[in-house]
Amino acid sequence: MGERIEALLRIPLAILYGVIVYALNLVAGVVIVIQFFYTLILGRRHKGMARFTNQYSSFLYHVNRYSNFATNEKPLFGGPGWEEVLPCDFDRENRRKKYEEIRDSFDDAL
Rank of each mutant, 00 (worst) to 15 (best):
50 A>R: 00
3 E>I: 15
104 D>I: 12
5 I>D: 14
57 S>Y: 13
40 L>D: 08
37 F>K: 04
66 Y>T: 12
62 H>Q: 06
79 G>L: 07
17 Y>K: 08
28 A>W: 02
87 P>W: 02
40 L>N: 00
99 Y>P: 12
8 L>R: 03
81 G>D: 08
93 E>T: 01
25 N>K: 15
69 F>E: 04
34 I>V: 00
37 F>P: 11
18 G>H: 05
77 F>W: 06
98 K>Q: 13
19 V>I: 11
101 E>L: 14
69 F>D: 01
22 Y>N: 02
109 A>Q: 07
99 Y>V: 13
95 R>T: 15
33 V>Q: 12
1 M>C: 06
44 R>Q: 13
15 I>Y: 07
86 L>V: 11
2 G>D: 04
42 L>V: 00
54 N>Y: 07
43 G>C: 09
73 E>N: 14
17 Y>E: 10
41 I>N: 13
89 D>W: 08
26 L>H: 15
89 D>G: 09
82 W>N: 13
4 R>W: 14
47 K>P: 01
37 F>R: 07
52 F>E: 04
95 R>C: 15
35 Q>V: 00
51 R>T: 15
42 L>E: 04
87 P>M: 00
38 Y>C: 08
77 F>T: 08
9 L>R: 14
18 G>N: 04
45 R>H: 11
6 E>K: 12
34 I>H: 03
91 D>L: 11
60 L>C: 06
60 L>Y: 11
36 F>M: 05
23 A>Y: 03
91 D>W: 09
96 R>T: 13
24 L>R: 09
22 Y>M: 05
68 N>S: 14
32 I>S: 15
22 Y>E: 04
10 R>A: 03
44 R>G: 04
52 F>D: 07
60 L>G: 02
69 F>M: 02
82 W>F: 03
16 L>D: 02
110 L>S: 12
88 C>L: 10
93 E>G: 05
84 E>I: 10
84 E>W: 09
72 N>E: 05
53 T>S: 11
86 L>A: 15
15 I>P: 05
44 R>S: 12
73 E>F: 13
8 L>D: 05
20 I>L: 02
84 E>R: 12
39 T>C: 14
27 V>T: 10
